Amino acid sequence: MKAEELFISAKDGFTLSLSYFPAENTDKKQVIAIHSAVGVRKSFYSPLAKFLAGNGYHVFTLDYRGIGDSGNPYQVEEGMHVWGSLDLAALHEFIFQKFPNSKLHILGHSGGGWLTGFLPPPQNLSSMVFLCVGNGYYNSFPFPQNIKIYVSWKFLIPYTVKKHGVLPTGKSYYGLPLPKNVALGWAEYGLKKDFIEDFSLNPRAKYLENYKVSALSYSFSDDSVLPESTVKSMLAKFAGLKITEKHIRPEEIEEKEIGHFGFLRPGHKKKLWPDLLEWLEKQ
């Protein structure tokens, strides 16, 4: 299956790149919008998108501004909040125009889950899936990891951005360099007790409790990026959701590791993806 590569405009005129995977062998109006993790390009989600499209869902993936095919990170001046309030809003508006009578399912990976807090729930939203979505506030992490996270948010990220003009990403992370104000905003959120909802932020995420649908959350015991404590802390902020939580140990599915990105690897097409599909079918 080959995706259709499209370009859309956010309300401020910024051009965004998206991929559309048409549903196969179905007349169902079921749509899945995949919200990428921080800095991860949309093509990383293509294997899962193709699997879901092959099982009757229209699937869309998006590159946030400054990531992948949506512009140069050195030329993006806006903060991280616009990834939700403008970029994801543009994606959902495009989906609604294309499939006005559809049922929408949001699949958010990592930061792609909590970015929804910056935009009102889409009117056709049917369910949500959270994949390793955790609270970035440093004290949500267990000791001594919380100390390392604090140092990163407070010192390392601002220093690195000042030195390079963007935030480069390490070899162990799948992300691309982040625009400077996106990176600095991310670090600022991580220092706030209420994370993206903190009243000291302008703008702050004020829509988390407005989401009132069924949701499925996956977390993994070997996720070193966002451990279980951060996931539980983040899910508590979505007070209006009816959430089914699944915390999986790799050995339960006869794997050595899964981690923060493993669910998305094609090797789990037979072990993890059918479980997701079964849950979606019940919605």
Rank of each mutant, 00 (worst) to 15 (best):
E93A: 13
I253G: 07
E197W: 03
T26P: 01
L115F: 13
I258S: 04
L107K: 12
P203L: 09
P47R: 08
Q75E: 14
R249E: 14
G113K: 02
K271Q: 13
L280M: 15
L191V: 07
K2M: 08
K212G: 04
K98P: 00
F44Y: 15
W83C: 03
Q75C: 07
A37C: 14
A90I: 05
E197V: 03
I67G: 01
P47G: 02
L216C: 04
T244Y: 10
F195L: 04
P177A: 03
V161I: 11
E209G: 04
Q30F: 06
S214K: 13
L191T: 03
T26R: 03
L6G: 00
P168W: 09
L178A: 00
D223S: 09
A3P: 09
Y20Q: 09
K42M: 14
V161H: 06
G68V: 06
N72H: 10
E188F: 00
G56F: 02
R204L: 08
S217Y: 04
P177G: 03
G190M: 00
F143C: 03
I149F: 05
G54R: 00
Y173M: 08
Y74I: 00
K148D: 09
I147N: 09
T26F: 06
S85N: 10
F141W: 12
H105S: 14
Y150D: 02
F21D: 05
R204S: 12
A90H: 00
F14T: 14
V82N: 02
W153H: 14
K256P: 04
P227E: 10
K242D: 15
H260G: 08
L277Y: 02
N146M: 02
L216N: 01
G111V: 06
E4Y: 13
G66H: 11
I157V: 15
A10F: 02
V166P: 04
S224M: 10
G134F: 08
Y137Q: 03
E209Y: 05
Y57V: 01
L52H: 05
S17F: 15
G117P: 00
K148G: 14
V82T: 15
G71H: 06
S200K: 14
F44T: 01
F99N: 12
L16Y: 00
G113N: 06
K242W: 01
L107F: 07
V38G: 03
S200P: 05
K148W: 09
K192C: 11
K28H: 12
K28A: 15
H105W: 11
S36N: 14
D12I: 10
K282V: 07
F199V: 10
G79D: 10
L276A: 07
S233N: 14
G262K: 07
M1P: 13
S9T: 09
V82F: 11
G113P: 10
P179T: 08
E77V: 13
